[in-house]
Amino acid sequence: MKRATIYSIAEELGVHPSTVSRAFSRPELVKASVRERIMATADRLGYAPNRTARGLATGRTGLIGLLVPDITNPFFPPLVRAIERAARDREAGVLLVDADARGAAEPGLIRQLRSEVDGLVVASPRAPSAKLKDAVSGMPTVVLNRTVRGLPSVVCDNGTALREAAEQLRRDGHRRFALLRGPASSWAARRRAQAVHQWAASADGVEVVELGPFEAQFEDARSAGPDIVASGATAVLAFDDLMACGVVAGLAEQGVAVPDDVSVLGCDDVLLARTMTPALSTVTAPLQELGEHAVAMLVAVASGERVRDERVEGVLTLRGTTAPVKGAAASG
C-alpha cells in the first residue's frame, strides 16, 4: 500500500498541504472542523507525523540552513521571521547566511552550510541553476521565490496582481509607464517584467519604457529620477518597495510630486511601504504563508515524501502613491 503523506491527505480533503502539516504542528491555528477531518483521514490512511522529520531530518543538528541574497533588503527580515516561527513549531532552529548580494558566492556558502544543518531553504538565489543544484546535491532543499528544475520550490506569483495594478492605472488615464527592472540575475525580476510586458501587449494604447536593470537598492532607484522624468511616464512600476521608495525620493529631487504628477507602485508590501508618506501602493506578498509552506515542504522532503511545487498569490494593495492622471477621464 502506498504510504500516506501530508500531500495525499491534502489532496483527498481538498485543502493545502501546509494546512495538514499545521494540524499536527500548530493545531490551534487550524479551524476545529477542518482539523477533525484531517485527523480522521490521517487515522483512516494510517498516517502519523514523522517526529524525526519534525526535528528536521536526521536529528544530527536540528537546524535548517537559510540562505538569503541580501538581508538589508526589507523583504527578507519578515520572511526570515516567518521561517524561524515555522521551524520552531517543528522543534528546529534556523542558521541564517547572507550572500551580500553576490550571486557568485552562493554555491560556496551553501557548501559551508551543508555540514552545519539538516536541510536548506535557499531564498531568491541568483546563482546559475546548474551551480545551485551541484551545491545542494544530496541535501534536502527547498528553493523559495525561484524555480529550479529538479528542486522543489515555493514561489509568490505577483503576475496577476501586477497586471491588475497596471490595468487600474490605465483606467485612471495613464498611458505611458516606466518599468524599473530589478537585478539582472533575479528570477523574480524577470517574471515581474514579463507580466508587465504581457499586459502591455494586450492593453489598448499603452507604452512601457523599461529602465535598468538595477540592483534592488534605494540609491539605485533614486538615481533613476532624471531618466523617469525624461521618459514622459506618468506611472512607475518598480521591482520592489525599496526601489519604489527610491523612485519617490528621486522624483521629489526633480520637482515631481507623487502621486499628483506621477504614480508609483512597488511590490512586496514591506513595513517601509506602510510607514512612508504617502503610503506606498504595492503588491502584498503573503510572507507568513511563504515561510510556512517552505518549512512544511522541507520537512516533507527530509522525510522522503514526494512533493509538488507550490505557488501563492500576491494581492494588489492600493494606497497613496497612485492616482488618476490630472484631468483624465476614467476609461473602461
Rank of each mutant, 00 (worst) to 15 (best):
L280S: 00
A130T: 08
P128R: 02
S186Y: 09
D157G: 11
P259Y: 02
A48T: 12
L63H: 09
W187G: 05
G327P: 06
D98V: 15
R191F: 07
V312D: 01
A329R: 14
A161H: 13
F239W: 06
D309T: 00
A48H: 10
H16L: 12
S18A: 09
P259W: 01
F214I: 02
V143M: 07
P74E: 09
G291D: 00
V20S: 08
R114G: 06
P278D: 00
R176D: 08
T141A: 06
A323P: 04
G119R: 12
K131D: 11
V122Y: 04
V325S: 00
E253F: 03
K326A: 02
A201Y: 10
V208K: 07
G205V: 04
A82P: 12
G225T: 11
K2V: 14
E28I: 08
G55E: 08
V270E: 04
A99R: 11
V97H: 14
G55P: 09
G232N: 06
L251Y: 07
A86W: 13
V229C: 10
A216R: 12
L318N: 00
N73C: 07
G103W: 09
V196M: 06
L67F: 10
S153H: 13
D100M: 14
I9G: 01
R26Q: 06
S8G: 03
K326E: 00
A200E: 03
A257L: 08
L169E: 10
L144K: 13
R192H: 02
R192N: 03
I9V: 01
I110E: 03
D98A: 15
G150R: 10
P78S: 12
V143N: 05
G150Y: 02
A285L: 01
A99S: 15
R102D: 13
P286S: 00
P152S: 08
R306M: 02
A323V: 02
A4Q: 10
A86V: 05
A252R: 11
Q168Y: 09
E253K: 12
G314M: 07
A330R: 07
P78A: 07
T317Y: 00
L95R: 14
V325Q: 00
E11F: 11
R35C: 01
T275W: 09
L120A: 00
G46Q: 09
G205N: 13
E215L: 15
I9F: 01
P278T: 05
V94T: 14
K131A: 12
V97E: 13
K326H: 03
D261V: 10
A32L: 14
F75V: 12
D261C: 05
A244W: 08
R319P: 01
L237F: 07
R35G: 05
G332R: 06
E215D: 15
R60E: 08
E11V: 10
V299A: 03
A23D: 12
S8K: 05
V68P: 15
L151D: 06
A252K: 13
G266K: 06
L67M: 02
P17F: 05
G304Y: 00
A184Y: 03
F214D: 10
D100S: 14
N50C: 08
M39G: 02
P278N: 03
Q254F: 04
D269F: 02
R319K: 02
A105L: 06
R191C: 09
A330M: 05
R54D: 13
S137F: 11
